[in-house]
Simulated scan of single mutants.
Amino acid sequence: MDLDVSGRRGLPGLDYPERFLHTLADDLGQRFSGVFAPETIERYVLESYAALLRTSSVKAHLATRVARFATDRLTALAQAKGASPSDRPSVLFVCVQNAGRSQMAAAIAHERSGGRLQVRSAGSMPADELNPAVVASLHEIGLDLQDAFPKPLTDDVVRAADVVVTMGCGDACPIYPGKRYEDWQLDDPEHVSIDEVRRIRDEITEHVDGLLRSLEVAR
């Protein structure tokens, strides 16, 4: 779902953040040449770095995450502008921390659609890491969240979505005309037993299956 830019040119680590950000902006400038001005790309890189730096408690993976986050945001903006059309419906799942419900929904939707759905997730107040019980509950059904991480909700991913599904984040998500909005009433998996997390996971699966049928992308 996400492109890891660091795999192409070997981005320098965050021991030298200015060099890292400059190299990342150059890489993305090549990828989005003719779509965005260098100034736009540089701004997105800096904003993405600042946003993840605030919420990340473990810096070991920060460089890779910044590269993926900036890339996905620019991809979403290009789609919203019509510069990079997609033949797949796009769904954005939003909860508060992007550490539990929205991550489960995104992983389940991606798997059960067979990749025929473009899936993103975000949080109105993202946590620093995923809920370990959520990761474990998905591992039980063969889904791996190893590369997933909490991401802040940004305007670009909302604009790129055909469907926005909210889960307990209230009015944090901006409203755009012509988009489909759903609010799923789900319990928060934070600070509950693993059996409760499994119940929430299965409830999310039922919601996802209904969504996929409505979008005609169910396998």
Score class of each variant (00 low, 15 high):
Leu3His: 08
Leu92Val: 03
Leu138Asp: 05
Gly100Asn: 12
Arg201Cys: 04
Ala63Leu: 04
Leu138His: 05
Ile175Cys: 00
Arg219Met: 07
Gly82Lys: 02
Val163Pro: 00
Gly114Ser: 02
Asp155Phe: 14
Glu203Tyr: 03
Glu196Phe: 05
Arg180Glu: 12
Phe20Trp: 04
Ala122Ser: 14
Ala105Met: 05
Ser48Val: 09
Leu3Ala: 08
Thr166Arg: 15
Thr205Lys: 09
Ile204Asn: 04
Asp209Thr: 11
Phe36Trp: 09
Leu14Trp: 09
Pro150Leu: 13
Pro177Ile: 14
Glu18His: 13
Thr154Gly: 00
Leu11Ile: 05
Arg31Ala: 15
Ala80His: 08
Ser137Ala: 15
Ser56Asn: 07
Asp87Trp: 04
Pro152Gln: 11
Ser90Ile: 05
Val91Ser: 00
Val217Lys: 06
Asp156Arg: 10
Arg19Val: 15
Asp26Ser: 09
Pro150Gly: 08
Tyr44Thr: 12
Gly178Gln: 06
Ala63Tyr: 01
Gly114Leu: 08
Ser57Thr: 12
Asp188Arg: 13
Leu143Phe: 11
His61Trp: 11
Gly34Pro: 01
Ala67Thr: 09
Ser84Gln: 09
Val163Ile: 11
Glu111Gln: 13
Val164Leu: 02
Arg213His: 14
Ala127Thr: 12
Asp155Lys: 12
Glu111Leu: 00
Gly82Arg: 03
Arg180Leu: 03
Asn131Tyr: 10
Thr64Met: 11
Gly13Glu: 11
Ala148Met: 06
Arg116Phe: 03
Gly82Ser: 01
Trp184Gln: 03
Gly210Val: 06
Ile141Tyr: 05
Glu182Ile: 01
Gly7Trp: 06
Val158Asn: 00
Gln79Asn: 04
Glu190Cys: 04
Thr205Met: 09
Glu18Tyr: 14
Glu206Trp: 01
His191Trp: 09
Asp15Ala: 12
Ser121Val: 13
Thr55Asp: 07
Leu11Tyr: 08
His110Asn: 06
Glu42Ile: 02
Tyr44Ile: 14
Ala37Val: 08
Pro152Arg: 09
Pro89His: 02
Val157Trp: 07
Ala37Asn: 07
Ala127Arg: 11
Gln118Val: 04
Arg213Ala: 08
Gln118Trp: 09
Met125Asp: 10
Ala99Ile: 13
Asp183Pro: 02
Arg159Leu: 14
Ala80Ser: 06
Gly34Ile: 11
Pro12Asn: 07
Gly115Leu: 06
Ala161Leu: 10
Arg219Gln: 07
Val58Arg: 02
Ala109Met: 07
Ser48Asp: 06
Arg73Pro: 00
His61Ser: 11
Ala160Arg: 08
Ser214Trp: 11
Ala127Lys: 06
Thr64Glu: 15
Ala127Trp: 10
Leu14Glu: 10
Pro132Gln: 01
Asp144Lys: 11
Arg201Val: 13
His22Gly: 00
Leu11Glu: 15
Leu117Ala: 03
Val66Phe: 08
Ile175Tyr: 12
Ala51Lys: 04
Val135Glu: 06
Arg88Asn: 03
Leu145Ser: 05
Ser214Gly: 07
Ser86Pro: 00
Gly7Ser: 02
Asp183Glu: 10
Gly29His: 03
Asp202Ala: 03
Gln30Asp: 00
Val165Leu: 05
Thr71Glu: 15
Thr75Ile: 13
Gln30Thr: 09
Phe69Arg: 11
Ile41Phe: 08
Arg9Ile: 15
Asp171Gln: 10
Val217Asp: 01
Arg8Asp: 02
Arg219Phe: 09
Val164Tyr: 10
Asp2Ile: 15
Gly34Thr: 02
Asn98Glu: 07
Pro89Asp: 00
Glu39His: 11
Ala99Lys: 11
Asp72Gly: 03
